[in-house]
Amino acid sequence: MPLAMANTIIQVDHLCKYYQVHQKEPGLIGSLKSFVARKYSDVKAVDDVSFAIDAGEVVGFLGPNGAGKTTTLKVLSGLLYPTRGVARVLDFTPHERRAAFLRNITLVMGQKQQLNWDLPAMDTFLVNAAIYEIPDEQFKKTLAELTELLELTPLLKKQVRKLSLGERMKCELSAALLHRPQVLFLDEPTIGLDVTMQTKIRQFIADYNARYGATIILTSHYMADVTALCKRVIVIDHGKLLYDGDLHALAEKIAPHKLIRVEFSQPLNGQRLAEYGEVVKERGQRAELLIPRDQTSQVAARMLAELPIADVTIEEPPIEDVITRVFEQAARARAERGESDENDNDE
């Protein structure tokens, strides 16, 4: 086990979480069969994952549905205990669920809620203040700050069920942060929200991180959340860690190309674009080409000299494409090793 750094907040070593899932064929016959003899298969939700996160980091946790993101967050917040390996958060073993641990973390699941549906959010806040033993002064101060950052004033006295999805998420986040946790696990905090609201929540998370120096792990299907908030990303798929490091370095590693967009002043006569690079799109007088990173400037210069160019831009390929490529590469690698895509072993 590597020695933990002094300010390491989250330490995960060779973490494994396997589930036994019972399988049932559809229909009545399937039900009867599974009643008589149940078939179980092991699902490796998390399979030998290691990483360490320092105080104050905001880390993006990326992976397709079922990659093991939520399972990892549940292990880290103490809801699940590991099949093998070690998880340490703030020097606690999460699944022991010590009160001192629970008072310093929070897990927000975009799909779940803790607010009482029939009451205004303020009632849940007061209950949480008591449960988390938040001193009166601190409660007032934190609530005032949250109210300012999230514009809660008009929402606090409305019944939760009468709030819009975005308003509810603001209140959920507040309820989860009233005790000022040092560690935040945010599982899809912007799911289902419109772009404006996503931006607001994103800004809020950044503010919270800056204000309290909190350590944050964030999962999201919206890459904009990740690019806006996280310098570092951890990519997992099928329970395995694929990448851990700088978000932009990932782009350079996985997509060793840049994207050149060109607009021509007149139709090309005979010149073949394929000579310059991989043509991704060509329509009318516009085209997009992928050029190897190290040759970008030479190729661009050649194109400017040889083609009737009106406009040119050089960009990083969209991060969504980069991530998609990571998963495609992983799937290919699995196929070459002869593993099934379902990642289970029938017994």
Partner: peptide, 12 residues
């Protein structure tokens, strides 16, 4: 429905 998990996150 998984709501119980939310309760388990509270120190009570």
């Amino acid at each position: 429905h998984g709501d119980f998990s939310i309760k388990l996150l509270h120190p009570l």
